Simulated scan of single mutants.
Amino acid sequence: MKAQLKIFLAPVILLLFSIQSMAQMERERANVVEPVETFWTPTLISQATTEHLPAGNLNVTIMHNFGIATTNPIQNFFGLDNIQNVRLGLDFGLTNRWSAGIGRSSLFNVVDFRTKYALLRQNTDGSKPISISLKGDLGIVTQENRQPFKDDISTLTSAIISKKFNEQISFQLSPMYGYFTSVDTGDNNHLFSLGMGTQINLSERFGFIAEYYPIIGEKNLNTNNAFSLGLNIQTGGHVFQLFFTSTRWHLEQYVLAQNRELFWAGDFRFGFNVNRIFGL
Results as ranks from 00 to 15, higher is better:
residue 4 Q to A: 11
residue 11 P to G: 11
residue 12 V to Q: 10
residue 13 I to T: 12
residue 16 L to C: 10
residue 17 F to T: 08
residue 18 S to V: 10
residue 18 S to H: 12
residue 19 I to A: 11
residue 20 Q to L: 12
residue 21 S to L: 14
residue 22 M to S: 10
residue 22 M to K: 11
residue 29 R to E: 15
residue 30 A to N: 14
residue 33 V to C: 04
residue 40 W to E: 05
residue 43 T to W: 04
residue 51 E to Y: 09
residue 55 A to K: 13
residue 56 G to W: 07
residue 60 V to A: 13
residue 62 I to L: 14
residue 66 F to S: 00
residue 67 G to W: 06
residue 68 I to K: 09
residue 73 P to C: 06
residue 77 F to Q: 06
residue 83 I to H: 14
residue 83 I to E: 11
residue 87 R to L: 12
residue 92 F to L: 13
residue 105 S to C: 00
residue 109 N to Q: 14
residue 129 P to N: 12
residue 130 I to W: 10
residue 137 D to A: 04
residue 138 L to T: 01
residue 143 Q to L: 08
residue 144 E to G: 00
residue 147 Q to F: 05
residue 148 P to D: 07
residue 151 D to Y: 06
residue 161 I to D: 03
residue 171 F to W: 12
residue 174 S to M: 13
residue 179 Y to R: 10
residue 183 V to G: 02
residue 184 D to R: 10
residue 186 G to I: 09
residue 187 D to M: 09
residue 188 N to H: 13
residue 193 S to I: 01
residue 197 G to Q: 04
residue 199 Q to R: 14
residue 202 L to Q: 06
residue 206 F to I: 13
residue 212 Y to A: 03
residue 214 P to D: 06
residue 214 P to M: 07
residue 214 P to F: 11
residue 215 I to V: 12
residue 217 G to N: 08
residue 217 G to W: 05
residue 220 N to M: 10
residue 224 N to W: 08
residue 227 F to V: 05
residue 228 S to H: 09
residue 229 L to T: 11
residue 232 N to T: 12
residue 239 V to H: 01
residue 239 V to M: 01
residue 239 V to Y: 00
residue 241 Q to F: 05
residue 241 Q to L: 07
residue 243 F to S: 00
residue 247 T to S: 15
residue 248 R to W: 00
residue 249 W to V: 01
residue 252 E to D: 14
residue 263 F to Q: 01
residue 264 W to Y: 10
residue 267 D to W: 08
residue 270 F to P: 01
residue 270 F to V: 05
residue 275 N to A: 11
residue 276 R to T: 14
residue 280 L to T: 07
